[in-house]
């Protein structure tokens, strides 16, 4: 089963895509590892992760078919 990830702002430049569908690795920590392997540029990026429109900070399980957002801080005005 898979999950969808949307990359916001500069993260889309770093990954080269605005969204991607991947196999569900099961948890936030596992996903972080998979993403950093797949997109090494993410290692030098700051972002928070939202799962199904809720921000998460801990290593929570990821439900099947979840929609995730990787969101960086913006400073421009």
């Amino acid at each position: 089963m898979s999950i969808e990830i949307i990359f916001f702002g500069q993260l889309a430049d770093k990954t080269g895509c605005s969204n991607v569908v991947v196999d569900n690795p099961g948890s936030i920590d596992a996903l972080s590892m998979v993403m950093k392997m797949q997109y090494p540029n993410l290692a030098t990026a700051k972002f928070v992760i939202a799962v199904n429109n809720k921000i998460v900070f801990d290593n929570e399980p990821i439900e099947e078919n979840a929609k995730l957002a990787f969101m960086p801080p913006f400073s421009g005005g």
């Binding site: 916001f8 702002g9 500069q10 969101m71 913006f74 421009g76 005005g77």
Partner: peptide, 10 residues
């Protein structure tokens, strides 16, 4: 709070 970057805003 409001912030922008390229084509996106928060």
């Amino acid at each position: 709070f409001g912030a922008v970057s390229k084509y996106e805003g928060q």
